[in-house]
């Protein structure tokens, strides 16, 4: 299984933007991702598969950029599931639970990142 957080990514980011700016970026990631948790659930309840695919597409880029690699992988798989010709609600629901669980863990991991 892919590691939850690739700290090298955030370390590189810190080098690129500066240590003083990194907490602000992480804070925005945490707030935005937390808002996504309810957004995903709402789209699922509405059966909005294309909306879910769109959110998963965005999530995978954000996670990859902030080093949340496990969540990125799950978002890729979830996007495919939602884009299926005949989306399977049960399968999507099951995957969504897993994705949101990983996202919560990722939020905690990224939010708690400190440069060693």
């Amino acid at each position: 299984m892919t590691e939850l957080l690739d700290t090298k990514v955030l370390t590189q980011m810190a080098g690129d933007v500066g240590l003083e700016v990194l907490p602000q970026l992480i804070s925005v990631f945490v707030d935005d991702s937390t808002a996504k948790l309810s957004q995903f659930r709402k789209l699922f309840d509405n059966g909005d598969w294309s909306g879910l695919a769109m959110e998963a597409h965005t999530l995978k880029s954000v996670c990859a950029t902030y080093g949340a690699m496990r969540c990125r992988d799950e978002a890729i798989a979830f996007e495919k599931l939602c884009k299926a010709a005949e989306p399977d609600r049960a399968a999507i629901g099951e995957k969504l639970d897993s994705l949101l669980g990983t996202l919560r863990e990722s939020i905690t991991a990224v939010g708690g990142f400190t440069l060693k």
Partner: peptide
Amino acid sequence: DDSAPLRLLYSTYL
């Protein structure tokens, strides 16, 4: 970009 963390990051890069 529709993602706030990415918009902020790219702006910061520049």
